[in-house]
């Protein structure tokens, strides 16, 4: 189960699993938001409710990051769940994690 919520412009939250089973759905929904939200300065992405993440999910996040950069939008993640932090650290993708100062 994957859920993407988008309460206000530039604010997003992911919940549930982001694995090979869910990436197609997640990709679809993210692409739709990107289409409508290309005018903001930054995306703030809440990862606190992500229960499961695999490499397919990471790849999707990387592609999102890349696309946003092309549009001049910063991707800021926050409150990463333990599973998210573990995998991103394993793959040395700390730039997808919030900067250390923001963790407190």
């Amino acid at each position: 189960m994957f859920q993407l919520s988008h309460p206000t412009p530039g604010n997003l939250a992911m919940a549930g699993s982001l694995t090979i089973y869910e990436v197609s759905q997640a990709h679809h929904e993210l692409a739709a938001v990107l289409h409508s939200e290309s005018q903001v300065n930054a995306w703030r992405l809440d990862l606190s409710a992500v229960e499961e993440l695999d490499t397919a999910g990471v790849q999707l996040l990387l592609a999102l990051h890349k696309s946003l950069l092309h549009l001049g939008i910063v991707l800021e993640t926050f409150n990463p769940a333990a599973a998210v932090r573990e995998l991103l650290e394993l793959l040395r993708l700390t730039h997808l994690l919030p900067p250390p100062a923001a963790q407190a």
Binding site: S24, H27, L34, T55, Q59, L62, K66, S67, R92
Partner: peptide, 29 residues
Amino acid sequence: GRLGDISHLALIDDTLPALAELDPESCYL
């Protein structure tokens, strides 16, 4: 990681396309 200590790791995503062209189930890494 069980065989030893992973001292460095770099994920290569040079061929990863932007979201619009992405096939999310394909691996680009």
